[in-house]
């Protein structure tokens, strides 16, 4: 068995076939106070390509953490590691620990289904199911065994209200979700994510396909949601990161160059590379 920091995991495309060479189920080190995710010495390779290098980050409860960096810097890879979606890509190898609420999600015994119930994700392009608005929201709870119509109705309303779209769709719950605008579809996807009552919401460029007004609505929503959830958001929009996040991590070539309070990053960053990136000198 190797040392805990050097543990290497090999995943195949099928999660059932996950092959773990060495991993302790729970890391011995204690997660920081209120830390939702504690990432320790995370390394990730796509074949020979070293995509994430010695990442160490603490993501705190009820905070919005923005991940910024130029294309190909590893920010999407990083966020997809937090719900283990990254293992759907063949030839991925991961080293290090990711503690979610103190437990290592990369451990052999950690069930990915449990993880994804706790860690929801919203993608760049709205991806509603080709079903009614109601069914989009009720789908997850139904999978988790909820059949009672009254309870499902409540979940649908609560989730749509939580995603600030209830008033716009309450009269048309049984219409196809594809009839909604792009901005509404994205908020529907956020509502769908809320329906399973996750702990953390990962957002991979959630507004890059939206118009400015829809973008501002989603941004306001994200700030509302942080009262109840912890949010990690990947964004190419520098102003968005500055507007909505509490902390910002700047990724470059697979490394975290700087991780600090957003206010600090956007007023006087410590690293010249961060400054050059956020002021638009490269990237």
């Amino acid at each position: 068995m190797g040392g805990k920091n050097m543990a290497a995991v090999t995943y195949s495309a099928n999660p059932v076939e996950v092959f773990v060479t060495s991993r302790e189920e729970t890391a011995t080190s204690v997660a920081g106070k209120n830390a939702v995710f504690s990432v320790r010495d995370l390394n990730l390779w796509y074949g020979e390509d070293h995509a994430l290098k010695n990442i160490n980050l603490e993501l705190k409860e009820n905070e919005i953490t923005a991940i910024i960096g130029p294309s190909g810097c590893g920010k999407s890879t990083f966020i997809k590691t937090l719900n283990r979606m990254v293992e759907l890509i063949p030839s991925v190898r991961i080293g290090g620990n990711i503690l979610y609420r103190g437990k290592d999600i990369l451990a052999k015994s950690y069930k990915v289904e449990d993880l994804r119930t706790r860690v929801g994700m919203v993608f760049q392009k709205p991806n509603p199911f080709p079903k009614s608005i109601y069914e989009n929201i009720a789908y997850g709870p139904k999978i988790h065994g909820i059949r009672n119509k009254k309870i499902l109705d409540e979940i649908v309303e609560k989730s749509l209200r939580g995603a600030a779209i209830w008033d716009e769709v309450k009269e048309r719950l049984h219409e196809n979700a594809y009839g909604l605008s792009g901005g509404q579809q994205q908020r529907l996807c956020i509502a769908r994510c809320l329906a399973i009552e996750p702990d953390v919401i990962l957002m991979d460029e959630p507004t890059s396909a939206l118009d400015p007004i829809s973008t501002l609505k989603v941004e306001e929503l994200v700030q509302e949601l942080k009262k109840d959830f912890s949010i990690v958001i990947v964004t190419h929009n520098m102003q968005q990161a500055a507007r909505i996040s509490d902390k910002t991590a700047f990724f470059l070539s697979g490394e975290v160059i700087e991780f600090d309070r957003t206010k600090k990053i956007f007023s006087s960053p410590a690293d010249k590379r961060t400054e050059d990136y956020i002021t638009g000198r490269f990237g």
Binding site: M238, Q239, A242, F266, S267, S268, P269, E275, I278, T279
Partner: peptide, 9 residues
């Protein structure tokens, strides 16, 4: 120009 950091200062 939405300046930040040194540019904004």
């Amino acid at each position: 120009q939405a300046p930040v950091a040194i540019d904004l200062r």
